[in-house]
């Protein structure tokens, strides 16, 4: 890693990618089968198998990368490619969440007011939904027979506020761990990462708690109209990302224990930290746009 090489390292032929694509297509086929055939287990098993293959592929693939790195096959330039790769991957995630925030914006500012008769929606309201009142958060749907009304919406100042604090402090701990890497302080790295993983898990725990509260007490479900829909999809996808990030941090933690990272070679650590910060920023937007406003 230290000597800048003239030739670029091109990895040799590899079986991991084909395993990944087969895993993916199996998972997809399994998922569809499971959706259509509720009483057959077959689809579910296929989904599981595909997923397992995918996970195995990821482990194998990253192991190859780690070995190649340990064998000092990579130059600075290769590392730079990885950086670009991760940065643009995160950008694509931004676009993905952007779509869902776009839905939230559209529902609040266009479709709901329109159905409730503002602007050009006078006749829509008058002829089709005369009873409907467009108040956000939507607790009374235009057609409550199809989309059951929730009892109430989710407030901002209980669990969500705590979760905001948790994620914000996790950003601090992960940065602290990063300083540890830069100064080669093992203990600081391990403690920082452990704290971050702990905070991440705590966040997930609270979110699960919040979901149960929503379903059981507020009767706020993913199927209770556009508010529930957007609430659960946005927080749900975010939650998945937190889970992913926590997993990544855990792996990075074990690798730190093994002493994989040095002050000038720890890209895997940095990539995970970027990802974690991204997840953090998404949460802040969520907190503001879904809960507060």
């Amino acid at each position: 890693m230290h000597a800048v090489k003239n030739t670029y390292y091109v990895p040799s032929a590899s079986y991991w990618p084909i395993m990944g694509s087969i895993g993916l297509v199996m998972a997809a086929t399994g998922a569809v089968t499971a959706l259509h055939n509720h009483n057959s287990q077959y689809g579910f098993y296929l989904l599981l198998l595909g997923f397992t293959m995918l996970v195995a592929m990821l482990f194998g693939w990253f192991r190859s990368v780690i070995c190649e790195d340990a064998a000092e096959l990579y130059s600075r330039q290769v590392e730079q490619s990885f950086r670009w790769g991760m940065a643009w991957f995160i950008f694509s995630e931004v676009a993905f969440f952007g779509a869902f925030f776009g839905v939230l914006f559209y529902a609040r500012n266009y479709s709901v007011p329109w159905l409730a008769g503002s602007g050009d929606g006078v006749m829509t309201h008058h002829l089709l939904w005369p009873e409907f009142q467009g108040v956000w958060p939507l607790v009374e749907n235009p057609d409550p027979t199809k989309f059951q009304n929730p009892k109430w919406y989710m407030g901002a100042w209980g669990v969500p506020a705590i979760n905001t604090l948790i994620l914000l402090s996790s950003a601090v701990t992960v940065t602290w761990a990063h300083w540890g890497v830069l100064q080669a302080r093992r203990l600081q790295i391990i403690l920082g990462l452990a704290a971050t993983v702990l905070l991440g898990s705590l966040f997930l725990y609270f979110q699960a708690y919040e979901y149960i509260h929503a379903y059981q007490e507020l009767e706020l479900k993913i199927s209770s109209g556009i508010y529930g829909t957007i609430f659960f999809t946005l927080t749900g996808f975010h939650g998945l990302h937190v889970a992913m990030g926590t997993l990544m941090l855990t792996v990075i933690g074990f690798r730190s224990l093994k002493g994989h990272f040095s002050p000038d070679n720890h890209f895997a650590f940095e990539a995970t930290a970027w990802y974690w910060h991204f997840v953090d920023v998404v949460w802040l937007c969520l907190f503001v746009f879904v809960y507060c406003l």
Binding site: V103, A107, S111, N141, P142, K146, F147, S223, T229
Partner: peptide
């Protein structure tokens, strides 16, 4: 499949 109403006016979507 999951009863969401992104694209259904009955639930406030479009």
């Amino acid at each position: 499949h999951f009863g969401t109403s992104f694209f259904n006016a009955g639930g406030g979507g479009d």
